[in-house]
Nucleic acid binder design. Structure first.
Length: 800
RNA sequence: GCCGAAGUGGUGGAAUGGCAUACACGUCGGUCUCAAAAACCGAUGGGCGCAAGCCCGUAAGGGUUCAACUCCCUUCUUCGGCACCA
């Protein structure tokens, strides 16, 4: 008889909800455990990626509860954002109506999966009780100079008609719709994340339980490089060209200077020179190429001579100034000193244009003096300084420091670090987001909205068509205000915040979601934070995690929290694929979780998701695998009809081994092998027959994975209380010790025999037993034994 | 180009110095059945052999070790991230 998952799942979901069994409270003697999965954008339907993410988290949450932890496992919705506006335009409705309907649908689907959330703590970022605190945080940042307005060229997506953060531009395209991004001049709000770059980089060291690759990506993104900014004076006028280098040890080998085509000094330098026209032509050409064609990184390094010279401050040498497209305006100072012998790009360029080269670092171990004429590619390795008056003979690593200090003392340069991380642009010309709480007054300038006037509510009936400008600008009642300072007529900021702002602190709000007196309750946050385990997709490895770390450090500076990192342990789960491709609407290969729940039940879907692959790797969707999972649950179900009064001692011992293995595997997120072990136990039960005790252990071990199913069987075993009240089973250490062991006997590393011996056999006795094994005779007959290696309780290797 | 992860049966995967392929899917065979499905039991890396058994085998090649999927070196491939970063 097959088990009727539909009735069982509905029955227990109702029970859990009515008894509020997953409600978390910051009280009691148990140790706390905060388990969080990245909250979803409410698009209306959950997809398999959500199912996988939340199943992994739910198993961990249920496991920790059974182990006696006080678990916080909340869920909410990242509800602001563009798709709601687009959907509202398309369906002729309002974003908030559309969003709330989607939230309702998704909530129902999440409940059908049986996830153990404390729904009493649900938050939606589009709720004014939530975004009020976005505005509060913004004002606090504004007070401290961390939110500022800057006119700048911004990335503009002509399709979405909005600005994009640098991080949202991928290969020159909009990250969402892949339209080619244009440049546009606008006054925008920025957050000064750069003020935290040193801490954001250093504190990565504390994150011992984060995946290596996420740490590498974050460090890469922050992109610190240490070096010296060197000042080169122009020979013929007063201009000073600053260049940045990480290799001050090569300064004596600098034989020319290169400016980026966009460098502001170029025009002054070429003014009135014979080369002026040619240089301008070159700059125009490069600018056209940048705006149209996709640039290949392997193109020849093009450039022109400006006719001007600069003076190398360390040796007063006159060196030519060039303009070339391989120097980027966006990095460093937009100008470089070129050292052809010791930098590959400079080498290629110098060869192409017949520019002078000078060796300044002699490779160690080379039998002759390295000369510029002999090299085929730049020498970028270590060595001894030469042709560097005052520093010759020093190892270059030592010279690097000494030259840098010397140049700083002499005023030739300044020791500095350069960073890749740029400030975070948060203004959006959109309706469906948190209004930025700022008022513009003709007399007073930029005036923050007073705290007591928060929240600045989103007007309900903004007319938006998805075309042009900010929809809030068209709502007269919203825009027209009186200045809080001078009471004269003023107008509001009409931009809203990027939604990454909302998700940068929601984990703190979950600790006190209904708190009215502040952004969050400090006592609650102190009890629950940091998040012990965070789980989500690798696609958030950089932005979301970096911003959340930034906000946490900011709260620390405000004195609201006493820790500096929000997420102790991080798991990035792999994607769900079908036929080797990501499931997506555009590919048309989406499998709807609802259909699977209807056909096989939520417990089967959970089981399959965990068994098919380890959490971090990609998961290939396989309908036959689903059937296998379903078959396994039915196999467990049938055990209850054939219970014996007493299981064999062997089975009891085996059960205790499995308890140990499954406990360790779940702790380490190795769900696939935990399930494999449970299958082994079930196979053993089918061989010899289980009693009630063994069966109940099996149910408890399976409970985090297939919770409805296990509740039902637990009740069928005569238990009055929910299985959630039961303790996680403990193994008896005496029962997992084997009395006898099977030893593998190898001759020269090849298996030739196996013997069964008592576990405590002494080495001398063991040797005797092994040598009397008839199977080994042919191998030992003619050759003397050279070595006899014993690995206790595992194997013996005889070398002949 | 640089950084990171990975490459194991027909398939998903297991084993992190000690029996390669646990567990599952698929396939084949058996039991039950009038029959089929379901369920249960068994076989299943390749080659040679009636068999006992032997040989080969974890992307390719080399090395360390009594012993290597596992450690080291070289190469190839795939995926992810960054990229003319000075």
């Amino acid at each position: 008889m097959e088990y009727s998952f539909k009735n069982i799942e509905e029955k227990w979901q109702k029970y859990w909800q009515e008894k509020k069994v997953f409600r978390a409270e910051a009280a009691g003697g148990k140790p706390k455990y905060y388990l969080l999965e990245m909250f979803p954008y409410p698009s209306g339907k959950i997809h398999m990626g959500h199912v996988r993410n939340y199943t992994i988290g739910d198993v961990a949450a249920r496991f920790k509860r059974m182990q006696g932890f006080n678990v916080l496992h909340p869920m909410g919705f990242d509800a602001f954002g563009q798709p709601a506006e687009n959907a509202a335009i398309k369906n002729k409705t309002k974003p908030d109506i559309w969003t709330h309907r989607c939230i309702q649908e998704m909530e129902a689907e999440l409940k059908r999966m049986g996830f153990s959330y404390d729904w009493g703590r649900e938050v939606s970022t589009c709720d004014s009780n939530y975004y009020k605190w976005n505005q509060w945080i913004f004002l606090k940042m504004f007070e401290r100079g961390l939110a500022y307005k800057k006119a700048s060229e911004v990335n503009w997506c002509p399709n979405c008609e909005t600005t994009l953060a640098n991080e949202e531009v991928i290969d020159g395209e909009c990250w969402r719709c892949h339209t080619r991004v244009e440049q546009k001049d606008l006054k925008q709000w920025f957050l000064k994340i750069s003020a935290y770059r040193q801490r954001l980089l250093e504190d990565l060291n504390q994150l011992k339980d984060w995946p290596e690759r996420v740490l590498a990506m974050q460090a890469n993104w922050i992109g610190k490089s240490e070096g010296v900014e060197i000042y080169f004076k122009a020979r013929d006028n007063q201009e000073v060209i600053s260049v940045f280098t990480t290799r001050p040890d090569t300064i004596f080998g600098a034989t020319y200077i290169v400016l980026s085509p966009g460098h502001p000094l170029v025009k002054n330098i070429i003014k009135g020179r014979p080369q002026e026209k040619e240089v301008l032509r070159f700059i125009n050409k490069v600018s056209e190429e940048n705006h149209s064609a996709t640039k290949s990184p392997e193109v020849d390094k093009e450039g022109v001579f400006t006719g001007a010279y600069a003076i190398n401050p360390v040796n007063r040498e006159e060196i030519p100034i060039w303009v070339a497209d391989y120097v980027l305006m966006e990095y460093g100072t937009g100008a470089i000193m070129a050292v052809p012998v010791h930098d590959q790009r400079d080498f290629l360029f110098a060869k192409e244009h017949n520019l002078p080269m000078r060796v300044v670092i002699q490779p160690q171990g080379l039998d002759h003096k390295l000369s510029a004429g002999e090299i085929k590619e730049a020498y970028q390795g270590e060595g001894i300084q030469i042709n560097s008056p005052g520093f010759d003979g020093l190892p270059n690593q030592e010279a690097k420091i000494k030259i840098a200090r010397w140049m700083q003392e002499k005023g030739m340069g300044k020791i500095e670090a350069h960073w890749r991380l740029r400030d975070w642009l948060i203004s959006r010309q959109r309706y469906w987001g948190s209004p930025i709480p700022i008022i513009y007054c003709e007399g007073c300038g930029i005036v923050p909205v007073p705290y007591e006037d928060l929240p600045v509510l989103l007007p309900e009936d903004a007319p938006f068509t998805g075309e042009g400008g900010s929809p809030l600008g068209k709502v007269k009642d919203f825009v027209e205000v009186t200045c809080p300072k001078c009471k004269s007529p003023a107008c509001r900021e009409t931009d809203t915040m990027a939604t990454f702002f909302d998700s940068s602190w929601y984990f703190l709000r979950f600790t006190s979601p209904h708190y009215q007196a502040g952004v969050f309750n400090a006592q609650e946050a102190e009890y629950w934070m940091p998040v012990d385990q965070y789980i989500g997709g690798i696609e958030h490895a950089i932005l979301h995690l970096l911003y959340s770390r930034f906000f946490t450090k900011f709260f620390q500076d405000l004195g609201l929290v006493d820790f500096n990192e929000p997420f102790k342990r991080l798991l990035t789960q792999g994607m769900v694929l079908k036929e080797g491709e990501v499931m997506s609407k555009s590919r048309g290969n989406v499998v709807d979780p609802d259909a699977i729940i209807n056909k096989y039940g939520a417990d089967t879907l959970r089981l399959f998701m965990l068994f098919a692959a380890p959490p971090e790797t990609e998961l290939e969707w396989d309908e036959r695998g689903i059937e296998g999972a379903y078959k396994f649950l039915n196999r467990v179900w049938r055990i209850q009809d054939n219970l014996k009064s007493k299981a064999s001692p062997q089975l009891v011992r085996f059960t205790h081994k499995i308890i140990k293995k499954v406990s360790e595997d779940i702790e380490g997120f190795k769900f696939n092998t935990a399930i494999a072990s449970l299958m082994e136990l079930v196979n053993a039960i089918y061989q010899t027959g289980a009693d009630k005790e063994v069966f109940m252990d099996l149910i408890l071990l399976l409970c985090p994975i297939a919770p409805h199913f296990c509740e039902e069987l637990w009740q069928a075993c005569g238990n009055k209380e929910s299985v959630l009240k039961a303790q996680w089973p403990r193994y008896n250490p005496d029962l997992i010790i084997d009395e006898t062991v099977t030893l593998v006997i190898q001759i020269n590393g090849k298996v030739r025999s196996r013997i069964e011996v008592p576990a405590d056999t002494e080495e001398a006795r063991l040797k005797e037993i092994v040598l009397s094994d008839d199977k080994l005779k042919p191998w030992l007959k003619d050759s003397p034994i050279k070595n006899f290696i014993i690995v206790p309780k595992r194997l013996v290797n005889i070398v002949v």
